[in-house]
């Protein structure tokens, strides 16, 4: 339907038939609107980031969680098993002016991902944010506490099953 689905399928399809496998350090590569996206498994995740750092992607620009609870049938390469949570990591190579995005699937039952802190200490706050907002845990993170919400807060606000708070509004002279 969308460009994304089309391009992802195109770039993934040849992998099964052709010799030219769109793989990067053993991980599946796709593209989304012209941006390179890699789909590592949780086991490959840290090794891939390490390998990419050796390739020149020295800066971890962004790390964001996504809760796909209501959108489980999102376009993904066939061999990637869609899970409820996803962590999108954007890496940047400032010398080669290249960007690459990692999308890691994180299952709801075991929402744990290894921390990137040792490789990119700048992910410290971002991983805490993902933990705070989605409840995704990062193992080996030095200080995995809530960062934006109060310490004693219950729940993870950016999850899709977390209600948006509403304040009832009484309009003037309207029947309530």
């Amino acid at each position: 339907m969308s460009d994304d689905a089309a391009t992802t399928d195109e770039s993934v399809a040849p992998e099964e038939s052709n010799e030219a496998v769109p793989e990067l350090h053993g991980c599946l590569v796709g593209s989304s609107l012209g941006q390179t996206v890699v789909f590592p498994s949780r086991e490959q995740y840290v090794d891939l980031v390490k390998a990419l750092a050796d390739d020149g992607y020295l800066m971890c620009v962004d790390l964001a969680g996504v809760d796909y609870l209501e959108f489980m049938d999102r376009p993904l390469p066939a061999s990637v098993d869609a899970q409820r949570f996803e962590v999108a990591v954007n890496l940047l190579d400032t010398v080669g002016c290249r960007r690459i995005r990692l999308r890691v699937q994180v299952p709801e039952s075991d929402a744990v991902l290894p921390s990137l802190f040792d490789l990119h200490p700048g992910t410290e706050a971002m991983e805490r944010e993902a933990f705070d907002m989605f409840g995704i845990e990062f193992s080996d993170h030095p200080d995995l506490t809530r960062i934006l919400m109060p310490e004693d807060w219950v729940g993870h606000p950016l999850r899709k099953d977390y209600d948006v708070g509403r304040i009832p509004v009484q309009f003037k002279e309207a029947n309530s």
Binding site: M1, D4, S32, V61, D62, R74, A88, N90, R99
Partner: peptide, 25 residues
């Protein structure tokens, strides 16, 4: 907006401001 996800960064006065949007259509 069609399904897909995108990250875009531009230079704000303070550095790279980026926007990551995932759309479900």
């Amino acid at each position: 907006v069609p399904e897909g996800e995108v990250y875009l960064g531009i230079e704000s006065p303070r550095g790279e401001i980026g926007c990551y949007i995932a759309s479900d259509g």
